[in-house]
Design a protein around this nucleic acid. Structure first.
Length: 637
RNA sequence: GGCCUCGUAGUUCAAUGGAUAGAAUAGGUGUUUCCUAAACAUUAGAUGCAAGUUCGAUUCUUGCCGAGGCCA
């Protein structure tokens, strides 16, 4: 039974009989009653004053009086400043509970027949995963689960950016300075090892740029100028808001072009570019090395994904799709959708879409990000012809990129482009500001996850909560709690918003956190264990003997009933935060119930059994909701 | 320079145009003869500034200030 629907029907009737007006059902807007007032549903009367030709206060009173007289469901009402608050009878709540309790698969909607693809993760293969990737992965995974619970079929995929200049940089540094190091020889995870060489490349590169720029300065007869050092000093001053001296301004004008020239001509960069060319020409030696280093990275990523608890149905590799992208661009060129400039580069004109011109192929024929994204999108729809929608979980710094991508696909005549969606999420900031790998202010994903598990272990041991646990059970619990805390922290914030992560303060286990919710679940599990021991099981008939509920009980039934609404809302908004907030509310109300209402002391057996069944439903709902977020719940903690 | 986000308690986050702007943390004060105190109860504290739209604006519009991003 749907309470809201029922109530709306009744209000509709009230309008018909009181004001002789026929309302559409969706005109009747109910909202949850704020807790400082009595009631569960609130009808806002202001918009209907015109229909009733009475003031809102009067309108509310008339409807309320009508309802309490004519409807079995309404126990009482009150009107505060034009807000009609409706209290339903306990009988209604009991039947709502019964429906949920009896439901075969409560919280999972029937199959919709819709199939969607969710892309998430999609890292570069030159660096280990960091905090930003964690938000991405948890978000993509949770959205996938939410869509599944809404009855859709979901394909989880990612594109691995395994080609390009970045991986060549790591390869080159490894060739030059690696001395044949491998993950085995160093004991490092593969992604970490490769990442180290990327950093090494950058260091060498910077040194060469500084050297070269100095040399250029000497050639320009500005022997005293050290462009790199000058630039650093000026950047620092700009950042801290210090004014620049006149000499510095003069020197900067001189140094800038020299520096740019050096950045383009540093020998190590030229070498990396040469390596990329050889890779594109499928030089066996280069290819071999590339496969080797990528294999290391994948192995490392695989480990990190396992820790994160995420997975994929299919992986796409940029090295497989970028050529398809080129083909599509050339086809588009032939068809006149794109145009070629004098230097041979290929462009698309999107001025009609209020976006400007965009490069698709460089003058030397090499592809850009856009090229391969076109290829990948097309390939995916070939692989999965039934998908209605493609969702890209990518940070909001790419907002413009995706606008352009979707516009291009539309221009190429792909109807499905209309249904492509960029699930854009905000950056994760540190107290020190933005994460920058070059400045070493990155929070490594593996390290952070380990730290969370350690903290969970410490906290649990402090509280003395692992009596009777085996070593393995304890380890599992620490993982459940630590990873839960981390996932919940990153998911409870609206994905669209940028968020702050303070490593010190973010690791909390009290309040609006996963461990606190998990704790509620463990308490419920404890009650259920005891009930089982006592052989207490509720039968449907027991519900007939209950005619009165505690206030907190009907509150919780309202919340349980609201789960499906939240599930739909979360899917519509692509927001796991909706589920996170909901779960916390539910756990919080249950904690109040736990505190206020005794269970095993209850002398009325029907009530006692009801409270056990009721607890069980709350526990299951918590478990399901947390499951959507990829968070496990323990039975003991 | 053009375009796009975002400004809410000390801090981290909420609020389909609705009521006295919710939580959590940090700070006060309480609650363990009772099913797990990672809990509960209680107290104090906020919409960047200025206009406009209306019965009503944190939400919509414009301007300014501030933070971040994208495109050159």
């Amino acid at each position: 039974m749907n309470v809201e629907q029922l109530l709306k029907e009744e209000i509709k009737k009230a309008f018909r009989n009181l004001f002789d007006t026929e309302m559409a059902l969706d005109q009747v807007n109910l909202q949850p009653t704020r807790k400082e007032f009595d009631g569960s549903h609130t009808f806002v009367c202001f918009p209907f004053a015109k229909i009733s030709k009475k003031n809102p206060e009067e309108t509310g009173k008339m409807i309320g009086a009508y309802l309490s007289e004519h409807s079995d469901a309404v126990k009482s009402y009150n009107v505060v400043k034009g807000f009609l608050n409706i209290t339903l009878t306990d009988k209604v709540w009991i039947s709502v509970f019964k429906a949920i309790w009896n439901a075969e698969n409560y919280g999972f909607l029937p199959p919709s027949g819709k199939e969607v693809m969710v892309e998430y993760s999609s890292p570069n293969t030159n660096k280990p995963l960091h905090l930003g990737h964690l938000r991405n992965n948890f978000l993509g995974y949770a959205v996938s689960e939410i869509l599944k619970a809404n009855g859709h079929k979901v394909q989880k995929v990612q594109i691995i950016n395994d080609r390009g200049i970045h991986i060549c940089k790591s390869m080159l540094a490894w060739q030059k300075f690696g001395n044949g190091e491998t993950p085995e020889s160093t004991g490092l995870k593969g992604d970490k090892l490769v990442g180290n060489y990327y950093v090494r490349f950058d260091r060498e590169y910077k040194a060469e740029v500084a050297e070269l720029a100095k040399k250029y300065a000497q050639e320009e007869e500005a022997a005293n100028l050290d462009p790199q050092t000058l630039k650093k000093e000026i950047d620092r001053k700009n950042k801290e808001g210090e004014p620049l001296t006149e000499t510095e301004k003069e020197q900067l004008k001189l140094a800038k072009p020299l520096l740019e020239k050096a950045e383009k001509n540093a020998p190590i960069l030229l070498e990396a570019q040469a390596l990329l060319k050889r890779w594109e020409a499928k030089d066996p030696e280069v290819y071999q090395l590339w496969m080797q280093m990528n294999a290391w990275v994948y192995e490392g990523f695989e480990d990190t994904y396992t820790q994160m608890g995420v997975n994929f149905d299919k992986l796409y590799y940029e090295s497989d799709t970028f050529l398809l992208g080129k083909d599509e661009v050339l086809k588009g060129l032939d068809a006149g959708t794109f145009f070629r400039k004098d230097d041979g580069s290929v462009w698309v004109d999107l001025s009609e879409e209020k976006l400007d011109e965009k490069l698709l192929l460089r003058s030397d024929g090499t592809s850009v990000y856009m090229t391969q994204d076109i290829g990948t999108a097309i390939l995916r729809f070939r692989d999965f012809p039934n998908i209605a929608q493609q969702i890209y979980t990518v940070g909001n710094e790419q907002d413009h990129h995706f606008k352009v991508l979707f516009a291009i696909l539309k221009k190429l005549g792909y109807a499905w482009a209309e249904e492509c969606f960029h699930l854009s999420y905000g950056m994760v900031d540190l107290p020190s500001g933005k994460m920058k790998s070059r400045e070493g202010t990155v929070v490594d994903a593996d390290d952070l996850m380990q730290e969370m598990r350690n903290t969970a272990a410490e906290r649990t041991q402090e509280l003395g909560k692992i009596e009777g646990f085996t070593e393995q059970q304890a380890t599992e619990l620490y993982d459940t709690l630590g990873m839960g805390a981390l996932k919940y922290f990153l998911l409870k914030v609206d994905p669209k918003k940028r968020m702050m992560f303070d490593p010190e303060e973010s690791i909390q286990f009290q309040g609006n956190t996963a461990p606190s919710i998990q704790y509620t679940h463990a308490r419920i599990a404890s009650i259920l264990r005891k009930a089982k021991q006592l052989g207490l099981v509720m039968e449907e008939d027991d519900l007939k003997d209950i005619d009165k509920l505690e206030e907190v009980e009907s509150d919780i039934i309202y919340t349980l009933n609201d789960y499906v609404h939240k599930l739909k809302e979360a899917a519509k908004e692509y927001s796991p935060a909706v589920i996170a907030q909901y779960t916390y509310e539910l756990a919080k109300s249950y904690n109040r119930f736990f505190q206020e209402v005794p269970i095993f002391k209850e002398s009325d057996e029907a009530k006692l059994k009801f409270r056990i069944a009721f607890s069980s439903v709350v526990g299951e709902t918590i478990s399901k909701a947390m499951g959507l977020l990829g968070i496990k719940v323990p039975d003991r903690m």
